[in-house]
Simulated assay, not measured.
Amino acid sequence: MKTEHGEVLHVAVAGAGRMGARHVRAFNALAGVEVSVIHEPRPAEECDLSEDMRRRCTQSYSTFLERACRADMAVVASPTATHFGVARDLIGRGLSCLVEKPMTLRPGECLQLERLARMQGAGLFCAHIERFNSALQATAGLLRTHPWEAVNITRYNPGSARLSNESLVTDLMIHDLDIVQHIMGLTFDALLDVESDADGQDSPAGAGVDHVTVRLQSDAGYPVTLSTGRRPTHRRRLIHARSPQGSLQVDLLNGEHHACFMTPDHIPVPLVDPTEDALTRQARAMVDSVMDGQSHGLASAEESWQTLTLCQLIEQRLQLATCQPSSPVSGA
């Protein structure tokens, strides 16, 4: 792809909140890339942006769309409820889009956006940042191919407590569902158990819940347990996989892994490459995608649909757990 702006690829960013501001900094730091317009309903002075970037902010959505037409790609980091409408508007103007997770509120909307992007000849991807975690990239091959007997993934993020009105599943657990589905390549034969700390209050499934544990039976023959929480004191993002031959622990938070196998001929795990943070890797992948039309490891709309469908199933079980909090929900 040749941009209309010579050597510089221009990016429009919708949303300058906590994640949107990080996207602005990551893209604008890349060589040959410039964030040209930002939409944020709040005054620019309230955004965590440089003075130069604040001057590129507009509170007017119509002005943003008008200026975005002169960009080469867009990032959608506005509130989740607006993802579908904003992405639809930008794709309709021919812009390839990177949409923060979850791509949409409802799984079917991912496919609607995918059809529109195909009609427009635009790229459409979901920002699943863990895919670009250096420790996960180093261990992805082993996680996918080794005959494990059990895998446990733990994710605790106290900082997410500010989003307690949003579903814990689509806010945090969605990262790990993407890992097991699309990095490890697993599908699931059964949703065995769902447990939460729901107190029976009348709220959307997964909202107001501070801890959820899910156990799934994979098509590879072993169970996968996901434990996600908002309230523990310390942040944690760990993958622990074990088999009769040994074990693997991946520390996603600190970019480290530790493999311990009994067989000396076992393929060594590649070293972690710490040269770039995950957000920069993701931004670079999106730029490369705009230039050559390939995905470069980014999550597609169809993959987002698959992950959101599983989120929806878990949330349905959470709703049952809220009605009957004294016992976990089980079943295929």
Rank of each mutant, 00 (worst) to 15 (best):
E51N: 05
F188A: 03
C260A: 14
S243R: 11
C110L: 07
S50L: 03
G141H: 11
P204A: 06
T3L: 00
L163G: 14
L298Q: 03
H39N: 14
K101Y: 13
R88Y: 12
L191S: 02
R106T: 12
M184L: 06
H39M: 07
D48K: 15
R88M: 04
I91N: 03
V269D: 06
H211R: 14
R144P: 04
L143E: 00
H258K: 07
S295C: 15
A31I: 08
T263Q: 10
S196V: 05
P79M: 02
R215H: 02
M184G: 05
N165R: 13
A207N: 01
F188I: 05
S164T: 10
F64N: 05
F132N: 04
R118L: 12
N157Y: 13
G293P: 06
L226A: 10
A71L: 00
L318N: 08
W305Y: 15
C110M: 10
V329A: 10
L30E: 09
A283G: 04
R42K: 15
T104D: 07
G6Y: 02
R236C: 07
T82D: 14
I38H: 11
V35T: 09
L310F: 05
R231M: 11
W148S: 04
Q306E: 13
V13I: 08
Y222T: 09
E166V: 09
P232Y: 06
E34M: 10
R22A: 02
H10G: 04
L168M: 07
A12L: 05
Q294T: 00
